Amino acid sequence: MGRKRILITGAAGFLGSHLCDRFIKEDFHVMGMDNLITGDIRNIEHLFPLENFNFYNHDVSTFVHVPGELDYILHFASPASPIDYLKIPIQTLKVGSLGTHNLLGLARSKKARILVASTSEVYGDPTVSPQSEDYWGNVNPVGPRGVYDEAKRFQEAITMAYHTFHKLETRIVRIFNTYGPRMRLNDGRVLPAFIGQALRGEDLTIFGDGKQTRSFCYVDDQVEGIFRLLMSDYPYPVNIGNPDEITINQFAEEIIKLTGTKQKVVHQDLPIDDPKQRRPDITKAKELLGWAPKVSREEGLKITYQYFKSLPQREINHKDFTYYNK
Rank of each mutant, 00 (worst) to 15 (best):
I114A: 06
Y218G: 13
G225N: 03
V147E: 00
A198S: 14
G196S: 13
N138Q: 10
E224I: 03
Y123D: 03
Q197W: 13
A151K: 02
Q155T: 11
R182I: 03
E169D: 13
G124F: 01
A193E: 14
Y135P: 10
P192Q: 04
A117L: 04
G143Y: 00
E121N: 09
M183F: 04
D134E: 15
V190D: 07
Q212L: 04
L199E: 09
I172R: 01
G196A: 12
G225I: 03
G188K: 09
P181A: 06
G225E: 05
E169H: 11
E202N: 11
F165M: 14
L106C: 05
T170E: 08
I114T: 04
R184F: 06
V139G: 03
N138G: 02
T164K: 14
A157S: 15
V173C: 06
I206F: 07
T205D: 09
Q131A: 07
K110W: 02
Y148M: 04
Y162E: 05
R214K: 14
A151T: 00
Y123N: 02
Q131T: 14
P181N: 05
Y148L: 07
R200C: 10
V223D: 00
L115D: 02
F227H: 15
Q155A: 13
Y218W: 12
V139M: 05
S109V: 12
S129Y: 09
T213F: 04
H163C: 05
F165Q: 15
E133P: 09
T119Q: 03
E202I: 08
V116S: 06
I158S: 05
S215P: 14
D149L: 08
V128A: 09
V219I: 15
S118W: 05
I195D: 08
I195Q: 06
A157Y: 12
A117M: 09
L168N: 07
G180L: 00
A157D: 12
W136E: 11
D134K: 14
S118P: 11
L204R: 14
L106G: 05
P181R: 01
G208V: 04
D134W: 13
D187R: 10
W136Y: 12
T119L: 01
K110S: 04
N177W: 10
K167W: 10
Y179A: 03
D134T: 15
F176D: 05
S132I: 03
F227N: 14
P192M: 04
V116Y: 03
F154M: 15
F216Y: 15
A161R: 04
R113M: 08
V122F: 00
I175C: 03
D149R: 01
V190P: 01
T170F: 07
E169T: 08
D209C: 08
S129G: 08
P192D: 04
H163F: 09
R184P: 01
V223K: 00
G146I: 07
G210W: 11
Q212H: 11
R184N: 11
E121Q: 10
I226R: 03
Y148F: 12
P126Q: 09
N186G: 12
R184K: 15
K111D: 14
P130M: 11
D220V: 00
V116H: 02
N186A: 15
V116C: 11
P141V: 00
G201Q: 10
Q131I: 08
D125N: 15
Q197N: 15
I175M: 05
R200P: 11
R113S: 11
G208M: 08
W136V: 13
R184D: 09
T178L: 00
R182E: 07
P130W: 13
R108N: 05
L191I: 14
N138P: 04
